[in-house]
Amino acid sequence: MSNSRLFRRISIGSAAVWLTLFALAPNLLVLSASFLTRDEAQLIAPLLTLDNYKAILDPLFMRVLAKSLYLAAGATLICLVAGYPFAYTLARMKTRFKPLLLMLVMIPFWTNSLLRTYALIFLLKAKGLISLCLLWLGIIDKPVSFMYTETAVFIGMTYTLLPFMILPLYSSVEKLDLRLLEAAGDLGASKFKIFRHITLPLTMPGIIAGCMMVFLPALGMFYIPDLLGGGKNLLVGNFIKNQFLVSRNWPMGAAASIVLTLLMLVLVWAYHSSAKRLGKKTEGTAL
């Protein structure tokens, strides 16, 4: 009895200490820094101000934010369109190779994503594999480069983040009650109707979870646009990094981080509340 209580105390206590030290404290430091003033020699001067947030509301930062949101939303949409049929087919497959196929989705994760981005360069460049194949097939007559374009950025982001979309979708399709689909078919519903009224609503939690898991990391990702897109755009990640390292404006960088964190919190909150509502709704229909 007392042994298990001790264990509980230690495990909860260590988790609490860990989170306080490495999540709560740093975030509070960032939060407090965002209200202070830049100092050339000491990095931060203890003068309270709201100027950092005023500067953040500048149209330039809004443009930077909009560009980041656009790239993240685009990558999410492509991942969804590519990932849904994939996850659906995989989950409904009647084969003993299913675990192996699922494994193949995850294997690229074993390699660092930066390295995989460099590997993409070898496919996309003018003297790269794709260009050489097209040349060999006679489809093009001089080398074509896909590098340093927005297309390359979307290819890179989709490639890196696709598994995050497939896995939640897979688990929600797998949980799908096949009897519902059969019943609908027996009652004369067309394939499209079945998909629209049964499959889609029941897999919605997976869709939302997948979109969140792609969108949030995509928002902060700046090395892919830098490497594949040629770094021609300023994204939120670049902006924050520049504030901290280049202009050594820590308070401003902290304010931008806080704005980004708040934006993400709103999205997570929206996800939770919509998941709750959906949960209630599906429970209601099941009853």
């Binding site: 330039l60 021609k232 755009n233 300023l234 902006f239 520049n242 504030q243 280049v246 202009s247």
Partner: peptide, 10 residues
């Protein structure tokens, strides 16, 4: 830094 952000942000 301000002009650098303008250069790339626009």
């Amino acid at each position: 830094e301000k002009y650098w952000n303008l250069l790339k942000g626009e």
